[in-house]
Design a protein around this nucleic acid. Sequence first.
RNA 1: GGAGAGGUGGCAGAGUGGUCUAAUGCGCGCGCUUGGAAAGCGCGUGUAGCCGAAAGGUUACCGGGGGUUCGAAUCCCUCCCUCUCCGCCA
Length: 423
Amino acid sequence: MLDPKLLRESPDLVRAAIAKKHLEVDLDAVLAIDAAWRTQLQAVEALRGAQKSANTAMAALPKGTPEFVAKVAEMKAVSAQVKKAELRLKETEEKFRAAMLTVPNLPHASVPEGRTPEENVVFSLHGAHGEPRPHALPHWEIPGFEKLFDFARGAKVTGAGFPFFIGDGARLVRSLLQFFLEEDGRAGYVEVSPPIFVNAASATATGQLPDKEGQMYETTPDRLFAVPTAEVPLTNFFRDEILDEAALPVMRCAYTPCFRREAGSYGKDVRGLNRVHQFDKVELLKWVHPSTSYVELDKLRDDAERLLRKLELPYRVLLMCGGDLGFAQSKKYDLEVWAAGQKRWLEVSSCSNFESFQARRAQIRYRPKDTGKPELVHTLNGSGLAVPRVLAAILENNLQPDGRVKIPAVLVPYFGKEHLSFA
RNA sequence: GGAGAGGUGGCAGAGUGGUCUAAUGCGCGCGCUUGGAAAGCGCGUGUAGCCGAAAGGUUACCGGGGGUUCGAAUCCCUCCCUCUCCGCCA
């Protein structure tokens, strides 16, 4: 959520931000509700004030005296007025909150102009993605693929998009997770193993609710939500808390399975491991001092990039343009790995600075030493990394003429051998 | 799952219908005292919204929500959480 004061005092700034993101928001309506809310608030406060002073006076009167009885009658009317005014105020408040949730976060000045994904800026390129690989195949066409990645059995047991990982396939998943967590730990992130179901309050604080309800798996009868990313439980860890300034930046990483219904997806995007309903991911989170959040974003991105470099996979970094930035982000980089068989880029990490947008909704603050007045932290997150697409890229880029897949050197200690075999 | 007891400020802990803008203690901050320190003494010490140029004013908040009442931390309903005992269990 954006700061209501900013909207009130600098509506043009917000208008410009919305334009840069190519979104449509009825700001005038939001401002009108805000004005109405403030008028109503003052009316309620005046009535409550009258009630309080009458209460003090009545406390000094003996009960049952004519004065007391008269006062009761008088305040009965005020009480009815208060109830009415408070109800109206509450309704307006809810409207205002709902309206504020339609206002996106401001893009950072360094975010390029642009409307579509094509206008994202290629920030950097790494590795020989253009080099010809005569043996390369889309991973799902590699002979023996279905022995290690069994989509048919998964569909029978659960549904489409819930594959079984078997033998060397399962082993490679485990190796990647272990490698990610070890590297992230070395980079300073404290490992956390969070709950993989969250309640409605948590899903609301990170923005999954109310709009994206249909994208999550929901349990009955407890109404818990299977996490779409570890970002949800991790961000909520400090919800409604005030952190020590000296503790910033707080850095954490977490592995969780991630669950996404992905309603409406189709086509080549969903072939093989490109898009599944359940996948493993390690997420990186930072809670930082507002003055350092862009330096921390660059570090976070580099932490994610390092994993791809060590895996010796060709990748590129995109700087998202205003139109492709997302509602809550101020600035975002996507890391895309090259899948040599499909001859396309696959997103494996998205590194974002939310500034105080998420922190405001979740009420995560720190106490500055000088003023002592709590201020909102800035929150950042990024994948480090998502397993299935990295796995797909390894299969496609490292497929040998003999049909085996060469395991990246850095993974060999975890995988235990130098090649993955489909036999 | 069953039975019981609880949830009050940074912490401990009073408060069972009316100056509660919540006693008291601890902690923390500032000052006095001292050669210096401790002790002692004095003052201060929550969060948020709104009004205001500011000084300041005002309202809300005693686990969440709802209700009763002229008036609720206090009474009622409901949900959540914690603790104790029992049952079940990897």
